[in-house]
Write a protein that binds this DNA or RNA. Structure first.
Length: 310
DNA sequence: TGCCAGGAATTGC
DNA sequence: GCAATTCATGGC
């Protein structure tokens, strides 16, 4: 049983639209987040210890300030590690000036510039969690993928308890916990046989130490090096690594051109009479560099906005 | 109801 | 090598 004993102030580089960022989490990927009176609450795992964090905004998009209450801190060093973890996870330091310049220069994309001013990635808490969730999300509608992820969490890990709070908070399972699951357990949760194999197989690689997924180590490698290293793993293809690089490591310039959601968003934006092919997406996005991830992210978000397209 | 879903592996030619 | 098929089930 833990309490929120520590508090830190986090000052994002403006603009920073925290309201839109947490609103996105209520739509998709809400397996781990709880919304409590405007605060975003979840657990994070840092160096194999679990903490509870409750984050709220005390500022505005142009003068942003976040306050985070932390539960589970055992030392000053841990508080520093958690603080750094949150800065990275919440994209506090990203400089997006160049992105908005690029959006304004494009007749099609400029509608995104105002609407998503200060809208940044909230990364997955750690690379292992990101990869597992991305594998689960392959080929499934987002709603069902979230259901499967939630069932995996409930099956494989113990929740985090906070004193004075009725609800407990889910903890994304460790590599060991996922590696020790049986295929049949995930089949019972309505995973396909292959998806169960992929998820457990990946976790076993990590648990055995044959695959390093520490963010600090992965940061040393280029996108291309990580593609070459990860795609040979069973169940991991190009799309999965692209998502991993975006949501796991915050790399700003990935174009997942085969992605169904991106293709549908571009069909809406440019009022095309067909879903563009992968090659057509590459042609449309040829000039997006070095902001392809962010433009893709904004276009994905546009799929949730009824007003932005017909 | 039937097709599609923010894919990947396998099979077939 | 590239195209077609299979995997599995919920969502709309």
């Amino acid at each position: 049983m833990y309490t929120f004993q520590h508090q830190i102030r986090l000052e994002p580089r403006p603009p920073y639209d925290f309201a839109r960022m947490i609103s996105r989490l209520q739509g998709v990927g809400h397996e781990l987040y709880r919304h409590d009176n405007g605060s975003l609450v979840r657990t994070i795992r840092v160096k194999n210890r679990v903490y509870g964090v409750s984050i709220r905004s005390e500022g505005s998009t142009l003068q942003p300030l976040l306050v985070a209450d932390i539960a589970g801190i055992g030392s000053d060093e841990e508080l520093m590690l958690v603080s750094g973890h949150l800065r990275r996870m919440l994209s506090l330091d990203a400089d997006l000036d160049g992105l908005y310049d690029k959006l304004e220069q494009d007749d099609g994309l400029k509608v995104l510039a105002d609407k998503y001013n200060g809208f940044r990635f909230i990364l997955e808490s750690d690379p292992f969690e990101c990869m597992v969730k991305t594998i689960i999300g392959q080929q499934l509608n987002l709603s069902f993928a979230a259901t499967l992820t939630r069932r995996l969490i409930e099956t494989a890990s113990e929740p985090f308890l906070i004193q004075g709070r009725e609800q407990s908070y889910p903890v994304f399972p460790s590599p060991d916990q996922v590696a020790n699951l049986k295929i049949e357990q995930l089949r019972a949760l309505q995973f396909s046989e292959r998806k169960a194999e992929y998820v457990i197989g990946f976790a076993q690689e990590v648990a055995q130490g044959s695959l390093i997924v520490e963010a600090a180590e992965l940061e040393k490698l280029t996108n291309e090096e990580l593609m070459e290293r990860l795609i040979p793993l069973r169940g991991i293809g190009r799309w999965t690594v692209e998502c991993f690089l975006m949501f796991g490591l915050g790399r700003p310039d990935l174009l997942p051109a085969a992605d169904i959601g991106l293709r549908n968003a571009l069909r809406n934006l440019y009022k095309l009479d067909h879903q563009p092919t992968e090659a057509e997406v590459r042609a449309i996005g040829a000039n997006w560099s070095p902001w392809s991830s962010y433009i893709t992210y904004y276009l994905w978000e546009s799929l949730n906005e009824k007003g932005l397209h017909g």
